[in-house]
Design a protein around this nucleic acid. Sequence first.
DNA 1: GCCCAGGGGGCTC
DNA 2: GAGCCCCATGGG
Length: 242
Amino acid sequence: MSVPREDGLNSNRNEGADNLNPAENSDYELMHIFNIMLEYFGPRGWWPGETIFEVCVGAILTQSVSWKNVMKAIGNLKKAGLLEFDDMYMASDEVIEQCIIPAMYYRMKTKKLKAFLRHVAEKHNGHLVKMFTRDRDSLRKELLGIYGIGPETADSIILYAAQKPIFVVDTYTKRIFSRLGIFKEEVTYDQMQDYFMKRLYPDVPLYNEYHALLTGIGNRFCSIKKPKCIECPLNEKCNYLV
DNA sequence: GCCCAGGGGGCTC
DNA sequence: GAGCCCCATGGG
């Protein structure tokens, strides 16, 4: 009888690897996966966003929605002249709602954007850069205290806007690494994040690119139903192949 | 017409 | 704290 693991990993991960350092072994594996994706896509140059404010807005708008829809919403906001902190802060809910309809849940997301803006205005005088001078862990705690910002959104803002090394995981990460046989289905966000951060050198460009590449695999090949395993560059390492 | 797509909050027990 | 529901558009 094997004892169920509490770290969300499949129990057979390190079988036959007793003479190897598990961390080194896993690190090699993670970098191998990374290199396969990088070779396929090339550097992806994420996060899409011209300013740190735009990155924060995108991080909220992309919740549970594909990036294509977010781009339309961002375009509308830009056209309406709302992609500056003060302008969006002063805008009415109705105007913001109209702009972000393509990003779905537009009323909820307007509330979330406003909550974020209000927080930055009240606590940091409206200066994102000032908020980002906080160290990574206290910044994360602060962001998680804002209405509408959960772990993934907080981590996206920390990595892509504040440029601090934190590994962003999402449903793509979970699906891909479950199908690769590395995560169990019931793995939690924190377990996944720990897994990567214990095995990858804390480097902003690496974390940035890794998440971007996983996103590419996720929406190009690794959909819930009808995944395109035949065409997927990771299929040789994957045991999901159908 | 149906299904699904990069989350998070709120409620119940 | 797990398990549910809600939000609510647009493309395939």
